[in-house]
């Protein structure tokens, strides 16, 4: 378990301020935030590489705030690997490892046996990251701190390596805290998400909670929510037999949401994948139905981002490419958009 409470730390002019969160034992935590938000400094403060100015860091319920780096049982993998350039790959991996059998296990798991006697200067960026991961895993740390550890790997190798590290984490009960810019990776791996910006925690909690229920419109936008609508709760919605149903207005748009948010200004967050598009009006359980006009269709790999003008308010829906083909959506075309009241998060 990693418990960080009121942590303050400095790295040059940069300051971490009052950082608090918990990653339970055996869980996978993800730290996300813009460049320069303090993600690496946070990992270094937990590892003890950066001396805190205040607050508390505990590993498995033991206060290690002022403990030496080598007394924390924490593994640290930097984005740039920092392999020891004067040692061949195998000696890098076995550096600090107590059990030779584990070194062999890690080398096989990450498929780096062929790199064994090579000099680190001859390795590619991806190979360096694999060796750095192997070096950290080989010492069997209780806590593993990963700073963008998969960023230099090609997509195929990235997926395989994620699975290997994920399996290791499960079988060894290692608590992991990973820094990433990749929201997909954060959603895929993270049990706990910590959103950091400007050295402070904007939101921390279970990944489902943080992604589904962002604390502020800024957090929602940062986490890639496609629809963050400014407006106000105007009162209870006229939905018979549904407790906590409220009516939210954004411009001319009237949306039904399930929320305890009191009457007054706020924002509605609706993720694009929650918005269903159809050519014709369809009867469904969704409480929000709108007719609109497609204004933009943009392709993002296997997905399409379709923007629909609904009563002057742009509403974004995320579709798979087959759905886009079936609906034959093009800018200027008429379309119907719907989403459930549960899909609307007010903040």
């Amino acid at each position: 378990m990693i418990e960080v409470t009121g942590l303050r730390a400095a790295a040059g002019e940069f300051r971490l301020r009052d950082v608090t969160f918990t990653v339970p034992t055996g869980a996978w935590g993800v730290v996300i935030g813009p460049a320069g938000s303090g993600k690496t400094t946070l990992l270094e403060a937990i590892a003890g590489v950066v001396t805190p100015l205040g607050g508390r860091v505990a590993i498995d319920a033991r206060d290690v705030t002022w403990a030496p780096v080598n007394g924390r049982a924490v593994g640290l993998v930097y984005q740039h690997a920092y392999l020891f350039p004067h040692l061949p790959v195998r000696e890098n991996v076995s550096y600090g490892a107590g059990n030779p059998a584990v070194v062999e296990e890690v080398i096989d798991a990450l498929a780096i046996r062929s790199l064994g006697e090579r000099h680190v200067a001859s390795l590619s960026g991806g190979e360096r990251q694999l060796v750095a991961l192997a070096r950290a895993l080989a010492q069997e740390p209780r806590v593993l701190l990963l700073d963008e550890p998969f960023s230099a790997l090609d997509p195929k190798r990235r997926g395989v390596t994620r699975r290997v590290v994920r399996d290791w984490h499960r079988t060894h009960g290692t608590t992991v805290l990973q820094v990433t810019h990749d929201f997909a990776e954060a959603g895929l791996l993270g049990d706990v998400t910590v959103l950091l910006d400007g050295g402070t925690v904007l939101q921390a909690g279970s990944s489902a909670e943080v992604f589904r229920r962002p604390a502020t419109p800024y957090v929602a936008e940062f986490l890639g929510a496609e629809n963050v609508l400014a407006g106000a709760v105007v009162g209870e919605a006229a939905v018979e037999g549904v407790p906590r149903a409220v009516e939210f207005h954004s411009g001319a748009l009237s949306i039904v949401a399930i929320s305890d948010t009191p009457t007054g200004p706020c924002h509605a967050v609706i993720r694009g994948e929650e918005v269903i598009l159809s050519r014709d009006p369809q009867a469904s359980s969704a409480r929000n139905h709108f007719a609109g006009t497609v204004t933009d269709v943009a392709l993002y790999g296997a997905y399409a981002r379709v923007t629909v003008d609904v009563q002057g308010v742009p509403l974004v829906a995320m579709l798979t490419l087959p759905s886009l083909r079936d609906l034959a959506l093009e800018p200027g075309g008429e379309v119907h958009a719907s989403f459930k009241a549960f899909a609307v998060h007010l903040c």
Partner: peptide, 16 residues
């Protein structure tokens, strides 16, 4: 010599 080499070595069990 980047001090992070020393940091990594210490996370791998070395004293300063």
């Amino acid at each position: 010599v980047d001090r992070r080499y020393e940091s990594v070595a210490q996370t791998l069990g070395d004293t300063p």
